[in-house]
Amino acid sequence: MKHLLATDGLDADTATAVLDTAEELKHVLLGREVKKLPTLRGRTVVTMFYEASTRTRVSFEIAGKWMSADVINVSASGSSVGKGESLRDTALTLAAAGADCVIVRHPASGAAHRLAGWLTEAGTSVVNAGDGTHEHPTQALLDAATLRERLGDIAGRRIAIVGDVLHSRVARSNVHLLTTLGAEVVLVAPPTLLPAHVDRWPVTVSHTLDAELPGLDAVMMLRVQAERMHGGFFPSAREYSIAYGLSEARLRALPEHAVVLHPGPMLRGMEIASAVADSQRAAITQQVANGVHVRMAVLYHLLAHEEEVA
């Protein structure tokens, strides 16, 4: 693996290898007082965040630090040429300064692909930490890690992704990864929040959450962004919540073993009831914890070519 840009095209073997490494790292670190492995000592990892983010940036930073990499955070406001230095120049500068890996979050779909192209010559690895409405591959990997822990296996499981699929990079990454790993994915959303030609995706589509609940092994709730609420994609927050919110009643309609996931940050009371988010069925904090291990595993597979994990 040279870059991690998308789960679209990521094969099952590679994805499974990353998930296995994440699991191994989790066990290695379990109960350790000093959470530090020497694996990436001497490696320089730069996070470049062109969008506000706390959880993803911190997760990557901790992952790098626990692997003993030198982690440098660059936060940039403004994304396009004309507002300052171009993305290309920033990337080339960081590579020239010695970055082994650039982790990028950017509002433009495809920004990570562009970076990878510009940095090929320098040999710098690129990790996509979320590009526009395209993909967020490490989120899908941490979701898969969580589902493996909770359900044992992903193949053959039926997993619903509920909400704003149209604008969600989390949804796109999960559709690709989960279907690659053998899950059945059902997208549940109003027609206005589904992508064009979604019927050609390897998923089933539903507009009725209640009808899907009894057959699910997991339900992944997507955040409803404020700008969508005012963008006319649905009549009102109230109506959305009634039709697509995960209420306590809906939690009861799920099978006993089914898991509730949310990539955060949550809008309690909108897409997910507070009691549901805090219930034992929800794996939301577990997702966050797994995020660190999965990102450690990604850095390991990108940067530690021969070295042992621990």
């Binding site: 396009s80 040429v81 509002p107 433009a108 526009g132």
Partner: peptide, 10 residues
């Protein structure tokens, strides 16, 4: 060149 050799949306 700089208006093309950049991210798509820019």
């Amino acid at each position: 060149a700089q208006d093309k050799d950049c991210e798509w949306s820019a």
